[in-house]
Design a protein around this nucleic acid. Structure first.
Length: 449
RNA sequence: GGCCACGUGGCGGAAUGGUUACGCAGAGGAUUGCAAAUCCUUUUAUUCCAGUUCGAUUCUGGACGUGGCCUCCA
């Protein structure tokens, strides 16, 4: 298949033609969740964006190796454990389970691999040893720090230089660090906290290390795409580069860096500290997974996306409208159509094309109808068939079908008698209960709002 | 303070050196007992200033504004 996928590479800050290392097999790593608390809509954006990229890559390459990690050792998990009076395992298992449910309801495909940090402690210890041996890291009082000044390209991804970083430093400087910018590879654990034996202390790895270790293990020392939210550029991804390139004596780690923009609420970043969090579970229960998914894809992935009821209601009526032409079908989509997605994953442009297909299909064009359905499925919509979608809407509605059908009969009788006042009254009564009555081609149908 | 992104019609949101998507909302019409749904038609825009150009919303510079990163964060 010929194609020209373009991606905006955060490293060069330019849109570039994508050329994988292996022309038939693509390698992609995306930073997954730290499992300490319910994932929120901001996390969902990352999930959906990289899932969509995964789907597009699968469409044009024979093989796509997509790794998304789970961070299950972290200070925030320890805090959550103490705060909620639960064990570390209880917390991480519980949140991982919710995360997987969220992925499913958003119709995200399973990544090729989903490695956990705690299953790779040995490799992280080995990498730390190696970095010390090569003089990129040093031990101090049970801690191991990466020496930032030893890596000459430090700041290349985030476009920062060490002088500026020092000048604006808000970092808590540990007395053991040689340089305030140095970051931790290994730290000792307090008694009772999760810890593993190591040459330096009973402790745990620093956050950045797992991604370096796991990406190398499953994708190689150099791979094609590394993704995550915009806020991971510094320090997380910068530090991954420093560790991996130093240890491998290589210039490159990931060839393309892809970062998604934030979900905002009232134009402000959704974040725990601002307390403006909406969980994925909450959003999905209210609007359904695919409405949430469509909303997340309604703006280009690098732009901010403001989360509000109007946006969601809008997407909901779009999905509702599109379901009228739902079809179990699998028509091959032309490259011309996919081209919009290949241009830096332009999902809003692609959605516009779906609207156009809908219009044509609705006029009776059978081929457009098939392509319309395939296009929806390509970006992960229509995971529920029409019945399942109608059933979904019945959840949280305390009204029985029998009651609705009885009311429809009463209304029909009223209409036949010419009592339109009563007929309208019944229709309004049902509308107040979120039931919409439609008279079409001599038949009366109903559906939930 | 350093760095980055953005500023498109009533709203959301793409694209583009000249013909100006798409959705929602609005207007008119078809249909309907009236509606709803659907169909047809349709109004409205590129923050400001300067430069490059035959021509800029698009390129360059500046101003103003908004948000983000520089500490954990998708």
């Amino acid at each position: 298949m010929t194609h020209n996928l373009k991606l905006t590479n955060s490293f060069t800050r330019k849109k570039e033609l994508f050329k994988p290392i292996n022309p038939k097999s693509v390698t992609m790593y995306a930073c997954g969740p730290t499992v300490y608390d319910n994932p929120h809509v901001g996390n969902a954006r990352s999930l959906v964006v990289f899932d969509t990229l995964f789907r597009v890559l699968k469409k044009i390459y024979e093989n796509v190796n997509y790794v998304r990690n789970i961070t299950d050792v972290d200070d925030k998990i320890i805090e959550a454990s103490k705060k909620k009076n639960k064990t570390i395992n209880e917390i991480t298992e519980e949140v991982t389970k919710i995360f997987h449910q969220n992925c499913k309801s958003l119709n995200c495909l399973k990544p090729t691999m989903e490695p956990k940090a705690t299953s790779h402690i040995n490799e992280m210890v080995e990498m730390t040893k190696s970095l010390i041996k090569k003089n990129f890291a040093y031990e101090a009082n049970g801690h191991v720090y990466f020496s930032v000044s030893s890596f000459k390209n430090y700041g290349a991804l985030s476009n920062k230089n060490l002088e500026d970083l020092k000048a604006g430093s808000r970092i808590e400087v540990s007395k053991f660090k040689k340089n305030p910018m140095d970051f931790v590879l290994w730290k000792p654990s307090a008694e009772g906290d999760p810890g593993w034996e190591s040459p330096w202390s009973r402790g745990r790895p620093g956050w950045h290390l797992e991604c370096s270790v796991m990406s190398e293990k499953y994708l190689g020392k150099q791979f094609d795409i590394h993704g995550g939210g915009l806020d991971l550029i510094f320090p997380h991804h910068e530090n991954e580069i420093a560790q991996s390139c130093s240890n491998n004596s290589s210039e490159k780690f990931s060839n393309y860096w892809v970062h998604n923009g934030f979900v905002t609420i009232n134009k402000e970043k959704m974040s725990k500290s601002l307390g403006n969090i909406i969980s994925i579970t909450e959003a999905v229960n209210k609007y359904s997974g695919q409405v949430v998914r469509l909303a997340l894809l309604s703006a280009h992935y690098r732009q901010p996306l403001d989360w509000n009821d109007k946006l969601l209601e809008n997407q909901r009526s779009t999905i509702e409208k599109w379901y009228q032409l739902y079809d179990e079908t699998n028509e091959e989509i032309s490259l011309e159509l996919i081209d919009t997605l290949l241009d830096d994953l332009n999902t809003p442009g692609f959605i516009a094309k779906i609207h156009e297909l809908y219009t044509k299909a609705n006029k009776g064009d059978k081929k457009s109808k098939k392509i319309f359905n395939s296009a929806c499925k390509l970006i992960g919509l229509f995971d529920l068939n029409k019945n399942e979608w109608e059933n979904f809407k019945k959840i949280n509605k305390d009204i029985s079908e029998d009651f609705i059908l009885k009311k429809i009969e009463e209304r029909l009788a009223a209409k036949q008698k010419g009592d339109y006042k009563l007929a309208d009254q019944i229709r309004n009564e049902l509308l107040n209960k979120d039931v919409i009555i439609e008279d079409q081609k001599g038949k009366t149908t109903w559906k939930f709002k």
